[in-house]
Design a binder for these strands. Sequence first.
DNA 1: GGTGAAAGTTAACGGAG
DNA 2: CTCCGTTAACTTTCACC
Lengths: 156, 156
Amino acid sequence: MKVINEQIEIDGIDKQILRALMNDARTPILSIARTIGISGAAVHQRLRKLEDAKLIVGSKFVINPKILGYKTMAFIGVYLDKAMRNPSAVKELQEIPEVMESHYTTGNWSLLIKILCKDNEHLMHILNHKIQAIKGVSRTETFISLNQQIDRQIKV
Amino acid sequence: MKVINEQIEIDGIDKQILRALMNDARTPILSIARTIGISGAAVHQRLRKLEDAKLIVGSKFVINPKILGYKTMAFIGVYLDKAMRNPSAVKELQEIPEVMESHYTTGNWSLLIKILCKDNEHLMHILNHKIQAIKGVSRTETFISLNQQIDRQIKV
DNA sequence: GGTGAAAGTTAACGGAG
DNA sequence: CTCCGTTAACTTTCACC
């Protein structure tokens, strides 16, 4: 692992370790070590370094929201009044649990957000009573995801 | 845990287990059990049921792409020719490692995709030489994410 | 960079209330 | 659903190369 500025370069062994854990965070370190052909302690050390370098942010269980009844995903372009303080709008968005992502973006919108709702009725409720209720939100454009084909992390 | 159609309803204990593991997939089952005040075997059984119900999809290490030099995220609205077979376009998108998400959406675009690039130059290259090169892609609209404030999973 | 061993935890299973 | 006990496997740290 080589540090260049605030970036790092990782070697093939780091990549093998990361690939295994990005695929299944509970893969035992020892089994990774055996696959690669080095000792568990070595894998452990490398992981510590990758964490120190902040490359590894954490680990998560991934759940399927559909099983809990969340079946409608949508992207919403949000127009904010110029005068408004955007940070307060973002703070209010953060209070809405259905909001999964929020980005400041270039282009027409101020924000692009991704939300997850149970159904279209739920989506409409969030739009009309939660998003539109936020001060500074003047208009929104909604794009419902009919089907997601790709969902992955960057390849290492 | 109650099964209703293909959906399930989970109780407070399931939620505590899921919250712990969604937050850190490597949390030992025994420590979760101690926190809740039940036995490790009980947590183990519940996890098996949640997996059987397909609520738990898997677990992942989350990495920070910026540390590897991927600093530009963008959303791209893709217009596909009506005549084109969309599946083949999606298949070609899948071959582009920079594409993190792809959705069929309602609205003007056929597809909305999320891509992750090293910088704007890299983004332009992907746009002009990879995305536009796909048969059926007539036009694209790009929104660069200047800043992401929210990134999370559904709350359980 | 890497190793191997030791100590302490944990996972996973079966049996039983 | 819970608890307990057992064994095998794993994590973590250490001195050392």
